[in-house]
Amino acid sequence: MSRIQETFARLMSEQRKALVPFITAGDPDGDSTLPLLRALVAGGADIIEIGVPFSDPMADGPTIQRASERALAKGMTLPRVLSIAKEFRSENSQTPLVLMGYANPVEAYGRERFAKDAKSSGIDGILTVDYPPEECGEFAEILKRVGLDPIFLLAPTSTERRFSQVASLGSGYIYYVSLKGVTGAGNLDLDEVTSRIPSIRAKVGMPVAVGFGIRDGSSAARIASVADAVVIGSRIIEEIENSPNDQAVGRVQALVQGIRSAMDAGQQS
């Protein structure tokens, strides 16, 4: 059982839902990333998605674009992300780490070598935004061979045929993009999302995480009432962006704690 699967199994036995925060590695600088990862865990994160910055983040809205630009300006690279993960893993053996990013840095690193090094750095899952199932068969096999979970996206517009493609290629969990558009967009239709989750879970046969557009405790709690995991990205990046550097870690922890409490309270009610 992978660390991601263990996490979902444990949460299920505790009747709790996973909180999955996202940060971009190297934002606002390389030294902040490890303290931020610790703060996310202290705030109640169950799984952490780490964004690998890319020069052309086509699927991201302005908030995560700016985080990528800040990180690249400070010299963040894929090898450095892996070394930060390794350091985190040396002090935390429980919290799964998922790398989320774009294909080109992975291709430049070499796909086989990336899979091997990610695994040995303590990474658990890989979500490559611009490797949809049709371009990811071989890469998913490479990841699975070394024991990494390939994580795939599904969208409100995804067809039935894609559910089965994703179910056969992916493992760990499915990331359901809760609205049309890019990361950080507004206008989340909670009713639409909550009505679709049960059938998606039944079709893909793995936990469903929901992200895009979730900004506070109450929307997180609503999503948690039906989904297995709640992903929060842009809202955390904004907190980092709007805090003086020495306060970002504390504020991010408080934000995550607030969302955690709302989700747990929602589960009990």
Binding site: M58, D130, Y131, P132, F152, L154, A155, T157, S158, R162
Partner: peptide
């Protein structure tokens, strides 16, 4: 070549 895009664009390209 190929279709290296996020899932959200797949239906539009189809």
């Amino acid at each position: 070549g190929g279709v290296f895009v996020s899932e959200t664009l797949i239906p539009a390209l189809d």
